[in-house]
């Protein structure tokens, strides 16, 4: 895998990582922190029941994109030091 795509992968990973942390924490979750229910299910429970598997799906897709990446350099790509 080229160095560029490895870097891009890391950046995508970072974005999703922080997005995950933001979306599964306050104040973002405050959006769903309400007494309303949908199909009798509380909004927050529903959000977590959907949001959580969704994040797993994202990881799954991400891990699939790693399929071709079998070189150890991805651990510490040299461009990290260069920048």
């Amino acid at each position: 895998m080229s160095r560029e795509s490895t870097t891009q992968q890391r950046q995508i990973w970072l974005i999703f990582f922080f997005l995950g942390i933001i979306m599964l924490n306050f104040p973002f979750m405050q959006i769903f922190n309400r007494p309303e229910t949908i199909f009798c299910l509380p909004l927050m429970v529903l959000y977590l029941l959907v949001g959580w598997p969704l994040s797993i799906v994202v990881i799954y897709i991400f891990s699939r994109s790693l399929e071709s990446n079998d070189d150890d350099e991805a651990v510490e790509p040299p461009e990290q030091e260069d920048n």
Binding site: W13, F16, F17, W52, S55, L66, D72, A74, V75, E76
Partner: peptide, 27 residues
């Protein structure tokens, strides 16, 4: 209430980093 879920949401989030962090530790 719901706060028991944090015990599982945390690991889910950190899993994002495994390919870089955990792999480095393993290597």
């Amino acid at each position: 209430g719901l706060d028991f879920l944090t015990i599982y949401l945390g690991p889910t989030l950190i899993c994002f980093s495994w390919w870089y962090l955990l792999r480095k530790i393993i290597l």
